[in-house]
Design a protein around this nucleic acid. Structure first.
Lengths: 231, 231
DNA sequence: TGCGTGACCAAGGCGCTATATTGGTCATCA
DNA sequence: TGATGACCAATATAGCGCCTTGGTCACGCA
C-alpha cells in the first residue's frame, strides 16, 4: 500500500491545504479536494482513512518542512541548537507557514472543529515543541541551567511558548511590534529562564541534536503519508 | 442615582454570580437574577444599563476583592511588591475565584459570548495584570533589571502571564502539578526574565505601590456599582 | 413625589420538519 | 489490480412558526 510515489499524495495535500486556507476546515469537502487534485474521490481513501487523517497529514507535512528548516539551520550554525535560538526559529518558521500559524494560534475561523479533533493530538503539544531527547542532550552538555532537569521543563517551557502563540489573535490590530521582535522577546525569556549564564560549547552536542530533529522530521513524514496505518 | 447602599446592588451581583457559575452566561436570564435577588426586574436596570454591564460588574467586583487581597499582602510584607511575587499572588488569587478563573482561562463553557463582548474590555488585558504606574515605580527603585523600561514589558509580561492562564484548559487531566507549583514556575520565569540579580530594598517603594493598587481597586469598584454611567 | 415594579413589546432564539449535502464504501472498469 | 464515481446512511442546513427574553415605562405604593 506504500510506494507509489508519483507525487499523487502531495497533489492531494496541496489541494487540501489550499482549500483549507481559502475556506476553512468546515467548508472544505472531500469532493472538492479530489476535483482540485485531479483524482477520484476513492483515491484519497487509498492514502488516508478519514477526512480528519487527511487534514492531519496536511499539518504533518508542514511540520516536516519546518523541522527540516530547523535542522538545516542547526547544521549551518551550531549555536542554533541552543534552546532560545531553536524556539526563536520555531516561532518564526511556524508563524510564516499559514497552516502551522493557524494550528498554533488556535485560529478557530480556519480550523473549526479540527482544533479539538483526536487526529490532531500527535501534532500538538510538547512532543513537537521540544522533545525530551533534545532537552536531555542540552542538559548533558551544560546548555541548560545547572540543576535543571528535562522534566522540569515539561510544564514551563510549553506554557511560555504557548503564550506567545496564543496571544496573537488577541493583540490589538495596532501593535507596532514585528514578528522578529516578538521572537526576540520569546528567545530572551527562554534564555534567561532556562539557560546558564556561561553555556558550554555547542559543537559537541550539535550532531546529536541535528539527528534528533531529523528523526522527528522522518516520524512526521511517515505519519503524513502513511496515515492509512493510523497515527 | 448613586447612594442607596443598603446592599441591594450586592444582592443582585451575588445572584448573578451564583447563576453564572451554575448555568453559564448564556443561560442566565435577568428575570432569574431578579427573582433570586428578591427584587423586581426594573430595579436591576436602576443599577446597570444592560445585561452585559451587569455581568461586567460581577467580574469587576471579583477584581476588587482580588486587588484588596493583593494590597493587604503588600502592606503586610513589602517583598510582596516584587513583580514575581505580585504575579504569583495574582495567579493564585485569580485561580481561586471561579469568576476570575473563568475570565482568565477563557472558559468558553461558562462565559460564552461574554468572552468577546465589548463590556469585558476594561476588565481584561494589561491594565489589570500590571499597570504602567506600578512598573514605573519598580523601575524607579531598582526593582527591575537595569535598562528595562516599563514599556518594554508591554508585550512580554502579559504574554507570559497569559500563557500560564490560557494553558489551563488544555492541560491533560492527569497533571500532578498543583496550583502552588504552577504559580511558582510563573514567578520563577518572571524573576529571571525581568528582575535584577540583586534587587534594591523594597521598603522605599512599598507605600507607593500599595497606593497604586488601592486606586486600581477603587476604579474597579466605581466601575462595578456605577455601571449606569458607562464603562 | 419619586423609587420600585411587573405587564408589555419587539427582536432574537429555539425546536421542528423537510430537504440537501457529504463522508465513506464498493462493485465495476480499464 | 489500482482507480473510479454512483450510491447510501448519517448528518448538516434552511425554512418557519412559536416561545423566550432583554429592556421600557406607566403606574402605584410608601
Amino acid at each position: 500500500m506504500r510506494g507509489e510515489h508519483d507525487g499523487r499524495a502531495d497533489r492531494i495535500l496541496d489541494a487540501a491545504k489550499e482549500l483549507l486556507l481559502r475556506w476553512g476546515y468546515r467548508r472544505v469537502t472531500i469532493d472538492e479536494i479530489a476535483k482540485l487534485a485531479g483524482v477520484g474521490k476513492g483515491t484519497i481513501y487509498l492514502h488516508w482513512r478519514t477526512r480528519e487523517q487527511l487534514f492531519f497529514a496536511v499539518g504533518a507535512r508542514e511540520a516536516v518542512a519546518m523541522l527540516d528548516a530547523v535542522a538545516a539551520a542547526m547544521r549551518a550554525d551550531p549555536d542554533e541548537i541552543m534552546l532560545h535560538r531553536y524556539m526563536r526559529r520555531f516561532f518564526l518558521e511556524a508563524m510564516d507557514r499559514p497552516v502551522l500559524r493557524a494550528l498554533f494560534t488556535r485560529d478557530a475561523e480556519t480550523l473549526d472543529k479540527f482544533l479539538s479533533s483526536p487526529a490532531r493530538k500527535p501534532l500538538e503539544g510538547a512532543k513537537l515543541i521540544a522533545s525530551r531527547d533534545y532537552l536531555r542532550v542540552l542538559a548533558g552538555h551544560g546548555l541548560l541551567r545547572a540543576g535543571l532537569r528535562p522534566e522540569d521543563l515539561d510544564y514551563s517551557l510549553p506554557t511560555i511558548v504557548f503564550g506567545f502563540f496564543a496571544i496573537e489573535p488577541l493583540l490589538p490590530p495596532d501593535v507596532t511590534l514585528g514578528l522578529e521582535d516578538k521572537a526576540g522577546h520569546l528567545a530572551d525569556t527562554l534564555r534567561r529562564t532556562f539557560e546558564p549564564e556561561r553555556p558550554s560549547a555547542r559543537e559537541p552536542a550539535a550532531a546529536e541534536v541535528v539527528e534528533i530533529f531529523e528523526r522527528l522530521s522522518r516520524d512526521f513524514r511517515d505519519a503524513a503519508y502513511g496515515g492509512k496505518h493510523g497515527s
